[in-house]
Design a protein around this nucleic acid. Sequence first.
DNA 1: CAGGATCCCGCTAGATACTG
DNA 2: CAGTATCTAGCGGGATCCTG
Lengths: 148, 148
Amino acid sequence: MATRTIAQRREDARTQYDAFLAGCPSRQLLARISDKWVALILAALGGDGPSSGDHCDDNPQPLRYSELSRRLAGVSQKMLTQTLRSLERDGLVDRIVTPTVPTTVTYRLTDLGLSLHHLMRGIKDWAELHMNDVLANRENYDLRDSGR
Amino acid sequence: MATRTIAQRREDARTQYDAFLAGCPSRQLLARISDKWVALILAALGGDGPSSGDHCDDNPQPLRYSELSRRLAGVSQKMLTQTLRSLERDGLVDRIVTPTVPTTVTYRLTDLGLSLHHLMRGIKDWAELHMNDVLANRENYDLRDSGR
DNA sequence: CAGGATCCCGCTAGATACTG
DNA sequence: CAGTATCTAGCGGGATCCTG
C-alpha cells in the first residue's frame, strides 16, 4: 500500500468513489463543499482582495473569526462557526488558538484546503464575471415564457 | 459601450459584482450554482464517462431527461426538473424538444454552461480524489475531540 | 416519456440570548 | 472576542398522483 505512485492512487480514488452514486461518500462530500458559505470562506482565506491584479495572486492570509464575519456580509455566527467546524474536521482549514485575553482565533487554509480553494475561487469568479450574461438570459427566458 | 475589449468587460464585471456582499446578485448566483445537483447535472452533460482517460476529454453529449435521472442516482423528478429549469433560465443548458410521440426532450450545455462545467467538474473530481484524505482527517478530528 | 401539481415533513438557516 | 445554546419559521426536497 506504500508502493503506489501518485498516479496509481489517483486511479484508485477514481474507481473507488463516484459522486453519481447516491450512497457514495463522495456524493456527501460534494454536497458539503457545494455550498455558498464554503465557497466564500475559502475565497476569503485564499486571499481574494478586491484590488487583486488580473493574474491570480495567492496570498493565503489567515483571518480571524471577526474578520471573516465582516468579509462575508450577512453570514450568521451560527453558519460561520458551523461551516468553519466542518471545514476544520475535513482538514481544509486549521484553527489556531492564541491564548491571549480575550482569546484570539485565526483560521488558515491547509494544503488540502488550498487545493480546493483554487477550484472554488474559479466558481466565485465565474459568478461575478458572467452575472450580466445570466441576467440577460433570464430576461429573455421570462419574456419568451410570458409571451406564449 | 460597444467599444469595450473583453478585458475591459472583465474588469467591469469584477467591479460591478462582489459575491462577498449580501445583496449582490452574484451572491445569489453563487448560491444557485453551489449545489450538488447542479454540479452533477453539469458533469453528466459535460461528458463524464467512468472510463475516461487521465487527460480531460470533453464530449459534451446531450442527454435525455430519463438518461439524466438514471445517471444522477437518487435524484427526485422534482429536483431534476427544477434544477434543469433554473439552468435553462440562466442560459446554461438548452432544452431541445423533438415532437415525436411520446415527446423526446434532450438537454445540452450551452457555451456558457460548458465554461462553468469545466470548473464544476474539477469540484466533483476533487471530492472523489480527496475522499480518503478527508475521511482520515475526520477520524483524527473525532478522536482528538473525544480524547479531551 | 417528460414532466406538472400537491401535500407534507425535516432540517436548517437565522434571530436572540447567554458565556469563558 | 469567539463562540455555545435554544427556539422557531420557512423552505428545500421527497413522495405521490395526475397529464399531454
